[in-house]
Nucleic acid binder design. Structure first.
Length: 227
DNA sequence: TCATTAAATTGTT
DNA sequence: AACAATTTAATGA
């Protein structure tokens, strides 16, 4: 049976649907896979990692270390998410750290391929604009709710990010993430996550399972502000 | 298939 | 941070 480049890509990049066959072929050739063990740094701030990066399986934390030495999480990226288009577009060094929170497989598209798609593919650009716009909205919302000190609300927000249906369309309503990993994302202790998830479950926003959870009301999660 | 053991995850203090 | 309880995975009869 004949499999097109687009079919091959579809398994690891949902945006391949928006590409024409020759574009998909080019994209596939420019992508290589790498694997990182749990806890490994994928890149440090300042590195010139000029590859556009997609998460095939696993979980990646985007964060930084502030001047005062505190670790800050900007976002968590689950399977199906792509990141780094900003740094690749501008040819700049990364402005943040990437850490694999668990064993993670990444698809890395080299810069020439990325730039070629950027210059030639309408479908690819549509995807990029959507992605950038959605991320922008996410950060605005973060700033708006800057005074979110209720730890449960922070957990809720980080969860809502992971489930952003625009950024990660392939994802269902279920995700496999341990409470420990969620604690690393939200920047709170595992105990807080444990209690927080129970609160959210009581409010029928999620259903807690072992080694994962199911989201029942994504909007409620995103707007949860505590009591 | 079932029982035992080890490892991982979660709830609590 | 440490501990106990619970669930899953792995192993071998």
């Amino acid at each position: 049976m004949v499999t097109s480049a687009r079919d091959e890509l579809r398994g690891l990049a949902f945006w391949a649907d928006a590409l024409k066959e020759d574009e998909a072929e080019r994209a596939r050739r420019g992508i290589s896979e790498r694997q990182f063990p749990a806890g490994a740094y994928i890149c440090h701030r300042g590195d010139k990692l000029d590859s556009w990066t997609g998460v095939i399986a696993g979980l990646v934390k985007i964060g930084a270390i502030s001047a005062s030495g505190k670790a800050i999480t900007f976002a968590g990226i689950g399977a199906g998410g792509w990141l780094g288009e900003g740094s690749v577009l501008k040819g700049e060094p990364r402005k943040y750290d990437l850490v694999a929170l668990r064993t993670t497989r990444l698809a890395m598209m080299n810069r020439p391929t990325f730039m070629w798609l950027f210059d030639n593919s309408v479908g690819f650009n549509k995807f990029l604009v959507t992605q950038l716009n959605e991320r922008m909205g996410q950060f605005i919302a973060t700033i708006e709710h800057d005074r979110l000190h209720d730890p449960t609300a922070r957990v809720a927000r980080n969860l809502a990010w992971l489930f952003n249906p625009v950024l990660y369309p392939g994802l269902g309503d279920h995700i496999e993430i341990t409470q420990e990993e969620l604690a690393l994302l939200a920047g709170v202790s595992r105990q807080i996550v444990s209690r927080g998830l129970k609160v959210l479950e009581e409010k029928d926003l999620i259903r807690v399972e072992r080694g994962g959870l199911t989201v029942l009301a994504i909007h409620g999660l995103a707007t949860y502000e505590g009591d």
